[in-house]
Nucleic acid binder design. Structure first.
Lengths: 220, 220
DNA sequence: AATAGGTACCGTGTTTTCACGGTTTTTTGG
DNA sequence: CCAAAAAACCGTGAAAACACGGTACCTATT
């Protein structure tokens, strides 16, 4: 079986990568690129003005509207669009969050072109692409699921205030200053921090910063 | 004047971007891509086995051997190769360090393809490409040069121990643990930290982590 | 031999961060 | 409407981080 006339759309803020990717995809038999977007919001707008793709390639780390949000939006509004997540990082949390958000596959930006082609074909023909990387991470997540208080259980439950807190924690502000900015008491902030340390299996603010960057919560 | 037969080589650990970039460059009149490398060390090896390019496109953040080191090596051993730095971040320090290391231009990964072409042509024909971004950052750096103890003066003087310290500071280790690992006293580590805070115009360990990531000192 | 610069080291004190074990208030679901 | 989450808040103490102002030693230069 040979795929044909697959309409692809790409969202990534790195225009050079995006454009190169588009060029590459256009050179593949059976694929065309109908539009490119700088970020999720741009993607949604072009969806309305340009048309509906069969496959969406979504970067996770994007300004304005990131890969998680975009994926969630597409899942709810255009469930037929197959989503392939594109990321620089191979961490478990990001993979699980992205799959939960509706992605049918997760590939790294250092993927080999030949493997990339396989991923595209797989998503179109089989409906998914679960690489060894993804499988391994998932197996690991499952195996640690029944550990007490394990992160996976609460992982995707980061609420808006926690996200806001994390973003501020990725600056040189003290917790006192963060509390003021969020109109909360320092103790509450302490609580957020303690909860997050527990949930995310980290011990220090530096760990929180690294987590935030790897998961696209902050863009630096 | 029209450029012709310009041999380009690329070093970037993101194969997808690199490959797309290579495809894009090959589609441009007068340019060819003679090899692609995963990182600086790979680049140097291919230099010996494949041949000498006219232009090197170097990512800053790479494993094994980063853009600064690679650029420095090329400057010393192959001064005729024109170097164009490729980065995700637009921070002043990275730009200055890269230009000091021998780069003839500095472009961001979110550059428009048309602008990218201009950059290539400019480096080949005029010997350099200083975008508005680079110029602005340089002007700013110059204007603050005579401020007392300004960072630019000491900026590129990060020595090996400081680099090692920074890398460890980007983990969840305490300074005590870092001191033990580096076989130094905690006071010495305190001194490193204080010096770096002063040099880099930061106030907290979080600031140090962000600096390290933006400047490719650590790869996450 | 004096000077300067870099590296390693140190003491003291303050502020911030983190850990622990709570209470009150608001939302939410049966 | 009432119980159970959850969100916000709090006190205390210990540990870590940060600020400041130093000393000792080594090397290279003049």
């Amino acid at each position: 079986m040979q795929v044909s006339n697959i309409r692809v759309a790409i969202a990534d803020d790195h225009k050079l990568l995006r454009n190169g990717l588009a060029t590459h995809i256009r050179s593949l038999d059976g694929y065309s690129v109908i539009f490119e977007a700088d970020h999720g919001k741009d993607f949604v707008e072009k969806l309305l003005s340009v048309g509906i793709p069969d496959l969406a390639l979504l970067d996770i780390n994007m300004p304005v509207m990131d890969g998680y949000e975009t994926s969630m939006y597409l899942k709810n509004n255009y469930p037929d669009i197959k989503i392939l997540a594109l990321s620089m990082y191979d961490n478990e949390e990001a993979i699980i969050r992205m799959l939960k958000s509706g992605a049918k596959g997760y590939i790294l930006k250092d993927i080999e072109p030949v493997e990339f082609k396989i991923a595209l074909d797989s998503v179109i023909m089989k409906g998914f692409f679960y690489s060894e990387l993804v499988t391994n991470k998932l197996v690991h997540a499952i195996n640690t699921l029944d550990e007490p208080d394990h992160k996976v259980r609460n992982l995707l439950a980061l609420n808006d205030r926690e996200i806001e807190f994390i973003k501020l924690a990725c600056t040189e502000m003290t917790y006192k200053e963060i509390a003021d900015k969020m109109f909360l008491s320092v103790r509450t902030i302490d609580g957020y921090r303690d909860d997050l340390f527990e949930k995310l299996n980290i011990k220090t603010r530096v760990g929180l910063v690294l987590y935030a960057i790897k998961n696209g919560i902050v863009t630096i």
